[in-house]
Design a protein around this nucleic acid. Structure first.
Lengths: 209, 209
DNA sequence: TAATCTCTATACTCGCTAGTAAACAAAAGA
DNA sequence: TCTTTTGTTTACTAGCGAGTATAGAGATTA
């Protein structure tokens, strides 16, 4: 079995750049913790004291890494949305029919929607964000929508997909995947990838026999 | 054109039962208004002062009709959930194949999800409710889930549906419909029924050609 | 007419949470 | 060693919103 290169970052003698790495790691920890709280209790019901306490620090520490609560929420969603965009772009650039590319895109999307940041994306309504963040949030969502529609349209053209209305087909699939976080149980017997695959197959094949 | 019986309720001489009717009408107005605010701004961000002001009354008036904010939210969702249950039960009791009954059930479900209370159901996470309401909320949702699964299972048995996993198929369809309120634009050119029909067809037929 | 019940308003309390001021600790650099 | 920068704390402010005490107006009943 191949191993990862062992522990090169763990030296007690600090390297230049350690500072920035630690700062980034702490930011990330705040975001991850916040996302979990948001998903579990909701954005408004989560206080930054909750997040701070969970991280064994106090609230002002969090304000040392983020300007305000809105920035934290937005960064959580940005991570989710970027993950979708990156994975989808890659999937969309493969060869094969439109249908097979759509399958890949939906799988990528589905996998993100089973993670903290993806669930956060699904649960965040844009009224939770300030005007400025909202604009970016919407823009990212529009990008994703355009990306999927493009693949759907290509599949319709090459005949591998049968779609009455590209817009409706895209929304229907996307919402079905967005909802996965509401019912998937990560403690259950079925893994994320299997679940994602089955949902995607259901969407591709339809329910009728 | 047939007309409704004209205005028999509008007599200035009050009838026995007027009191109760007015009370019920006012309760309903509070719920409808609250549901719209919840959907537009979110539950936490909606203050009962918002709702009261929109109805030209003050907050204590609302407390004359409801015990607390939780009861208002729960009643909104109960209306949505009951509408789904009633319509679905009716649809499920029709004749025909499992597939045709599932179509009817999904159509009924979809139509509710395009209305205020339905959207409220879709957006309400159970952490928004108190322990007691949450129990009822979950029970109603379980009933709906069971109802749909039943029809899906029957369709799988009579061969009119091809379904790998009843649970996953049901969740996938339900979540796709739950999400309709997030993208459907009631000011747009396409009506609710047409939209619902197209989404349901997409789910039934699938995306692949 | 008097007594009561229903509805609504004014004017509050109380608790919670986003965000801040200021000080202190610890490390980095000169 | 002295100074500066970075990270963290304690202790606060300020504002909002759920829920209530109380009183008064209108209708209902006796």
């Amino acid at each position: 079995m191949p191993r990862k290169a062992a522990q090169i970052d763990a030296s007690p003698w600090s390297q230049p750049g350690d500072r920035e790495r630690e700062r980034a790691a702490k930011r990330e920890a705040v975001l991850r913790t916040a996302a979990r709280f948001f998903n579990q209790k909701g954005f408004h019901a989560t206080s930054l004291d909750d997040v701070a306490t969970a991280l064994n620090v106090t609230k002002p520490t969090i304000y040392h890494y983020f300007a305000n609560k809105d920035e934290i929420l937005f960064e959580c969603t940005r991570r989710g949305l970027s993950a979708i965009i990156d994975a989808s772009r890659e999937a969309a650039a493969q060869g094969g029919t439109g249908a097979s590319r759509l399958r890949s895109v939906l799988m990528a999307y589905a996998m993100v929607m089973l993670d903290d940041y993806g669930i956060c994306v699904a649960r965040t309504q844009d009224y939770n964000l300030t005007e400025a963040s909202r604009k970016q949030f919407r823009a990212l969502k529009r990008d994703i929508d355009a990306l999927i529609r493009q693949v759907v349209a290509e599949g319709a053209e090459d005949g591998s997909l049968k779609v009455r209305d590209v817009r409706i087909a895209t929304f229907t699939a996307a919402q079905a995947l967005n909802g996965m976080g509401n019912w998937y149980n990560s403690d259950g017997p079925v893994g994320k990838e299997d679940t994602a695959r089955q949902v995607v197959e259901t969407l591709m094949d339809g329910l009728s026999g």
